[in-house]
């Protein structure tokens, strides 16, 4: 099957800055795809390359098998939900939503019917007459979504779509976006710096750093088997184990990672395991996060809040199942 979006050795350089550097990427049709990374990692530039706001310095971009290099944004059947929503302040909600149809020359009646339908889809029926300035942040975002969806794009791009919302609304929108995507079957590509968001929403995640893709995989793969230290560090809160440590306790001279929930803390001063000292505790609700100092290596463990907790300053011994230690691809 033709991928919805494919990048072949795509680079985008701004002077000496390599915003995107020889990226290869394939996004399947109907997929919910997340591009995750810190700011400046190249994820937004990748999105803009798909939308057509940027042109690659080199490489090939295809959308459903058709060459997209040199094609302006208005000729791509791809729509974007902008981070700041970019609603047109001079138009009311209905005209905002119908904008894409208007410039394509769709008759007034037909486009207002389509706009109303799109507004109903994002749960804002009857809001057509309002101005964007009269809406809340969450409502603006729904309008932005409707404005993009009304054009029946083959790919929908979302640039940090939930960044400006507060936590409660963000969680609600995550679920809605997910179910909307399932319902419509459109390929969604969204950019975020929030790993929780990427993992909970996407079918597949690409982790970006320094203009390159560090790893592509399902959320489970990314979370459980990070390919590099950067991924392990950025996605979730894994402990990163240096090669020396790995040599001693896991028998391999490679970089490794270990999730905090897989560390057991034994209240004893000696014995089999890693000697450590408790540095601090932080209560997280169901679990408690324990910061540990294992001979200079800073580790974190999460233990059940209900059980016996060590106190800061205690000498303890740490144990873990070797199977839980993930050996990363990155060479020592």
């Amino acid at each position: 099957m033709t991928p919805a979006v494919s990048f072949t050795k795509v680079s985008r350089h701004f002077g000496a800055v390599r915003a995107v550097d020889a990226v290869d990427l394939e996004i399947a049709e109907g997929e919910f795809f997340a591009m995750l990374g810190p700011s400046g990692s190249g994820k937004t530039t990748c999105l803009r390359l798909i939308a057509g706001f940027e042109q690659p310095t080199s490489g090939r971009i295809e959308i459903f098998g058709e060459n997209a290099v040199g094609v302006p944004p208005y000729r791509r059947n791809v729509n974007t939900v902008f981070q700041d929503y970019a609603l047109f302040p001079h138009l009311n909600v209905a005209d905002n939503v119908a904008y894409g149809l208007m410039v394509k020359g769709v008759a007034r009646e037909e486009r207002s019917r389509a706009a109303e339908e799109a507004l109903a889809l994002v749960k804002l029926p009857g809001y057509g007459a309002r101005k964007p300035g009269q809406l809340s942040g969450g409502q603006r975002q729904r309008v932005a979504l409707a404005r993009a969806l009304v054009n029946k794009p083959r790919v929908l791009l979302l640039d940090e779509p939930l960044g400006a919302l507060d936590l409660k609304l963000r969680e609600q929108m995550q679920e809605e976006l997910k179910s909307l995507q399932k319902q419509l079957g459109i390929t969604f590509v969204f950019v975020t710096h929030d790993q929780g968001e990427a993992l909970s929403m996407a079918d597949r995640v690409a982790v970006f750093n320094d203009g390159k893709i560090m790893q592509i995989g399902s959320p489970q793969e990314i979370y459980r088997r990070p390919a590099t230290r950067f991924v392990a560090d950025f996605v979730g809160s894994s402990n990163i184990l240096p090669p020396d440590f790995m040599q001693r306790y896991a028998g391999q001279r490679r970089w490794g990672s270990l999730r905090p929930e897989h560390i057991r803390i034994l209240a004893q001063t000696s014995g089999d395991g890693v000697p450590a000292r408790v540095a601090a505790l932080s209560y997280l609700g169901a679990g408690t996060r324990v910061s540990l100092d294992a001979e200079g290596l800073r580790l974190h463990a999460v233990v059940d809040s209900g059980g016996a907790l060590p106190a800061p300053g205690d000498a303890v011994v740490l144990t873990f199942n070797r199977d839980h230690v993930h050996v990363m691809d990155e060479p020592a």
Binding site: I63, F64, E66, A68, R76, N77, V78, V150, Q183, G185
Partner: peptide
């Protein structure tokens, strides 16, 4: 199923210009 569902019948990904 919404009328806005993905058009899998092969709507072009690249549109003709004006």
């Amino acid at each position: 199923m919404s009328a806005l569902a993905a058009d899998r019948t092969g709507a072009p990904a690249i549109l003709a210009g004006r």
